[in-house]
Design a protein around this nucleic acid. Structure first.
Lengths: 153, 153
DNA sequence: TTGTTCATGTCAGTATTTTGACATGGCCAG
DNA sequence: CTGGCCATGTCAAAATACTGACATGAACAA
């Protein structure tokens, strides 16, 4: 037996919790909460962690680069970068050698702090991935990518 | 021919953009941006719209109820509710008849304002849904639900 | 060279959201 | 009846993020 009211994809369901947008928001909120909790014990915020991770993978990214990659404005990114700099986790040249962009790099302490939190963060990612059938993970990544592409201007 | 480096699900990929968490954040950021843009022309913010939608579906929700449903703190929810009340889109009894919770209801103008924006918002949801193969939409909803459930405490 | 255009970094101000704390009302075991 | 416990609403303060604006340097066309 099936549901008495078949889903009609051409129109949004009257139950908000069945909208893709709602579930997307819910999943992201849960992820944010779990990461906040995992990072709090290490004294880092989510944007700070994201920035460290990005810089470890691609050293020399500028503030504008990082802001785009972490989905915040340049201004917000700048605040995060200042915080990390004051904490001694990253360095930026005082003057730009080309244009105005100043490439950021992890310090030694930045690397060790990142390594210290990665286990906790990866455990969260792991919990997420294990919650869905393995053969669907790839499709999920593709679908999320398509969604983002369809909504970006 | 396939990729030279097969994915190893037991460990996070070194490319951050292939993490489920990253794509989730990206898709949600894109959704938020698209909704902001669609709602701006109508003078509403995303939390305000979400609150109106919820109240239309389940009249009488309290501030705490709405805060949970929109994934913000009670305090933030209260600010949104005050704004909507000042704008004349919702009403709340001055005194609670049972406990401390004061049930909120849409005003006539609240209903009309909501109806006016729904087309724009549903169009965004539509763009999202059309971006992925129809037979995968249901699976996507299930996966997102599982992710949220796995990360919530 | 000169002017235009664009991306970047940054300042100031505002808005939004969160954390922390507290008082109040209902519920229930004792 | 009473005390503990929990959910709710709300205040205050801090953190966080955004909008708007401006100056600077690079790239490019005329």
């Amino acid at each position: 037996m099936n549901k008495s009211v078949p889903t009609d994809p051409s129109r949004p369901a009257d139950d908000v919790t069945r909208h893709v947008g709602y579930q997307l928001k819910r999943a992201q909120a849960a992820l944010r909460g779990a990461m906040d909790k995992a990072l709090r014990e290490h004294g880092l915020t989510v944007p700070q962690y994201s920035t460290l991770e990005l810089l470890a993978l691609r050293p020399g990214m500028s503030n504008a680069d990082l802001a785009r990659a972490t989905f915040v404005t340049r201004q917000s990114g700048n605040v995060v970068l200042r915080g990390l700099q004051e904490a001694g986790l990253i360095t930026r040249p005082a003057t730009a050698d080309h244009g105005r962009s100043r490439p950021a790099h992890l310090t030694a302490e930045g690397h060790t702090r990142l390594a210290a939190v990665q286990a906790a963060v990866y455990a969260v990612e792991q919990r997420m991935v294990e919650a869905i059938p393995p053969q669907r993970v790839e499709a999920l990544l593709i679908d999320l990518d398509r969604i983002a592409a369809a909504l970006e201007d």
